[in-house]
Lab assay of single mutants.
Amino acid sequence: AVCQVIGMYDYTAQNDDELAFNKGQIINVLNKEDPDWWKGEVNGQVGLFPSNYVKLTT
């Protein structure tokens, strides 16, 4: 993983390639090539999510 982030809001996947997560959930970021849509993993599920829905862990 590149880094870990925390969901600031609940996110519901809109497409099959997206990653759903809940507020407060830890997401392992796998790829930040696109500044707006990062690739991440939660509980074995991998997908894209909007980078503005998360904050970096300290």
Rank of each mutant, 00 (worst) to 15 (best):
N31A: 14
Q14L: 08
A1D: 09
L19F: 04
P50C: 05
V5M: 04
G47H: 00
E33P: 05
P50G: 03
Y11K: 01
K23W: 02
N43F: 02
G24A: 01
T12F: 08
D17K: 12
V46Y: 09
V2Q: 07
K23R: 15
L30V: 13
T12I: 05
G24E: 01
F21C: 00
Y9H: 15
E33Y: 05
N31I: 06
V5Q: 05
E33N: 07
Q14P: 02
Q45K: 14
D17C: 09
N31G: 13
L30R: 04
A1Q: 07
V5I: 02
I6V: 15
V29P: 01
T12G: 08
N52D: 13
E18P: 01
E18R: 02
P50E: 02
K55L: 09
T57M: 13
K23P: 01
Y53V: 09
I26D: 02
L30C: 01
W38H: 03
Y9N: 15
E33I: 08
A20K: 10
S51A: 13
G47L: 01
Q4P: 02
E33M: 08
N28P: 00
L30S: 03
G7S: 15
K23Y: 05
L56H: 09
A20Y: 05
N43T: 02
E18N: 00
V46R: 08
W38F: 01
N15I: 05
P35F: 06
W37F: 09
Y11Q: 04
Q14H: 07
E41F: 00
A13G: 09
F49D: 07
Y9T: 15
D16C: 11
C3G: 09
G47T: 00
M8V: 15
K23A: 15
G47Y: 01
I6Y: 06
T12Y: 10
S51L: 01
Q4L: 06
A20H: 10
D16I: 12
N22H: 12
N28R: 13
Q45R: 13
D34G: 08
G47A: 03
D36V: 13
L48H: 09
V46N: 04
D10M: 14
V54C: 08
N52P: 06
G47F: 00
N15K: 14
E18K: 08
G40F: 00
V42K: 08
V29D: 04
D36P: 06
M8Y: 07
T57F: 14
G47M: 00
G7M: 04
L48I: 14
S51W: 01
L30D: 01
A20D: 10
I26R: 12
K55W: 04
C3K: 06
K55S: 14
N43L: 08
T57C: 12
I27W: 01
D10V: 05
N15L: 05
A20P: 12
D36G: 10
G24L: 05
F21V: 14
T57K: 13
G24C: 00
V5Y: 09
E41R: 03
N15Y: 07
Y11E: 02
G40D: 04
Y53L: 11
G7A: 15
S51M: 06
E18A: 05
T58F: 09
D10P: 10
I6Q: 11
K39I: 07
Q4G: 05
G40I: 03
F21M: 05
S51E: 00
N15M: 09
D16G: 12
K32V: 10
I6W: 04
T57I: 12
Y9C: 15
N15C: 06
V42N: 03
E41V: 04
L19S: 02
G44S: 04
D16H: 05
I26H: 09
W38G: 02
G44A: 06
N28D: 10
D36W: 09
N15H: 08
C3L: 08
V54T: 13
Q45S: 11
V46H: 06
V5F: 03
N28M: 09
G44E: 01
N15P: 00
G24Y: 00
I27L: 08
K32G: 06
M8G: 07
Q4E: 05
K23M: 07
D10L: 04
Y11G: 05
V5D: 04
L48R: 13
L19W: 02
I6E: 13
M8S: 10
P50D: 07
V54N: 03
L19G: 04
T57V: 13
K32C: 12
W37Q: 11
V5S: 02
W38E: 03
T12C: 07
W38S: 03
D10T: 14
F21K: 06
L19K: 01
D17S: 15
L56C: 15
S51V: 11
G40P: 06
Q4V: 07
E33D: 13
D10K: 09
D34Y: 00
Y11S: 03
V2W: 08
V5P: 00
A13L: 01
G40V: 01
G24M: 04
I6C: 08
W38K: 05
Q4N: 10
G7V: 06
I26Y: 05
N22I: 10
L19C: 05
F49H: 06
V54S: 01
N28E: 11
V29N: 04
P50Y: 00
V42G: 05
Y9D: 15
E33G: 10
L19D: 03
K39H: 15
E41Y: 01
W37P: 00
Q14R: 14
K55T: 11
I27Q: 00
T58C: 14
T57W: 11
G24N: 09
Q14Y: 00
D16A: 10
L30H: 04
I26T: 15
K23S: 11
N31K: 09
Y9L: 15
W37C: 06
D17G: 15
K55N: 07
A20V: 06
K23F: 05
A1F: 10
Q45L: 10
L19N: 04
L56Y: 11
G47V: 03
T58M: 07
Y53F: 11
L48E: 03
Q45I: 12
V5L: 01
D34T: 08
F21S: 00
T57N: 13
E18M: 04
K55M: 14
Q45F: 08
L48Q: 07
A20F: 05
Y53W: 10
A1C: 05
T57Q: 14
G47I: 02
L48G: 06
E33T: 13
P35D: 11
N31L: 05
N43I: 00
F49L: 06
E33F: 05
G40A: 03
Y53I: 10
I27Y: 06
L19I: 09
V29A: 03
Y53H: 10
T57P: 14
N31C: 15
C3F: 11
D16L: 09
W38A: 06
D17V: 07
T12P: 09
T12Q: 09
Q4R: 09
D34F: 06
G7P: 07
D36H: 13
Y53Q: 11
N52M: 12
V29E: 00
C3M: 12
N15Q: 11
I26G: 01
C3W: 08
K23H: 09
F21E: 03
D17L: 12
I6T: 08
D34V: 04
W38D: 04
N22C: 15
F49K: 02
K23Q: 13
K32P: 04
D36C: 12
L56G: 12
G7W: 03
Y53G: 05
T12H: 12
T58N: 10
F49Y: 03
T58I: 06
D36M: 13
G24Q: 08
Q4W: 08
E33W: 00
G44I: 02
N22L: 10
D34N: 09
A1I: 15
V29Q: 00
G40M: 05
G7T: 15
N22G: 14
F49S: 02
T12W: 05
D34Q: 07
K55H: 08
E18Q: 14
V42D: 05
I26P: 06
I26S: 06
L56S: 14
T57G: 12
S51P: 10
N43C: 06
A13K: 09
D36S: 12
T58R: 14
E18W: 01
C3V: 08
